[in-house]
Simulated assay, not measured.
Amino acid sequence: MNKRFERSTLAAMMAVGGLALAGVLSTAQAALPPIKHQGSVQYVSGGIGIDESESMKAAAKDYPLALTFAAQRDGKADYVASVAVTIHDSQGKEVLKAMAEGPYMLVKLPAGSYKISATYNGRAQDRQVTVQNTGTTRAVFEWK
């Protein structure tokens, strides 16, 4: 084979690979559930199905707070939805009250300390978290 043919073949393969990657990324973004607002707080919840789950995981880097919800069933942890979530700031002011529509909830909050209450099947759990200016703070709620 001549060098010119090899270079053009390699360039074509790279272009096809780039298009495939762009298609995967746009599919992941398209699978992200709708972003919601409550006051000044922006959040998204979901993660049901592989596409939506992968989209939520990929989007977590853009949110200062990531919540995960699971429950023990037959000796293993299963993801759950329909979790009532309430977040209060350090002064006790409610900043978010929403229903998680899947096992993941991503929340944009300013840096600070927060109390998160999550209720699933009538059983509540609380977590204290500190949200930083950079990175993602993660909190996991698991019911037994």
Rank of each mutant, 00 (worst) to 15 (best):
M1L: 03
F5L: 13
L10C: 09
A12P: 03
A12K: 08
A15D: 09
V16D: 03
L19E: 05
T27P: 04
A28F: 09
A28E: 09
Q29P: 04
A30K: 15
L32D: 07
K36V: 07
K36A: 13
H37T: 12
H37M: 10
H37D: 11
G39V: 00
G39Y: 05
Q42I: 12
Q42E: 15
G49K: 10
D51N: 11
M56I: 05
A58F: 01
A58P: 03
A60S: 15
P64V: 02
P64W: 01
L65F: 00
L65V: 03
L67A: 09
L67Y: 04
T68I: 02
R73Q: 11
G75M: 01
A77Q: 14
A77N: 14
A77I: 05
A81H: 12
V85C: 07
I87F: 04
H88S: 12
G92W: 04
K93T: 14
V95Y: 09
L96P: 02
L96T: 06
M99L: 14
G102S: 06
Y104K: 05
P110L: 02
P110F: 03
S113W: 02
S117Q: 15
T119A: 11
T119R: 04
Y120R: 01
Y120L: 08
R127H: 06
Q128N: 13
V131D: 04
T134W: 01
G135Y: 00
G135M: 01
G135W: 00
A139F: 00
A139W: 01
F141I: 06
W143L: 06
K144S: 09
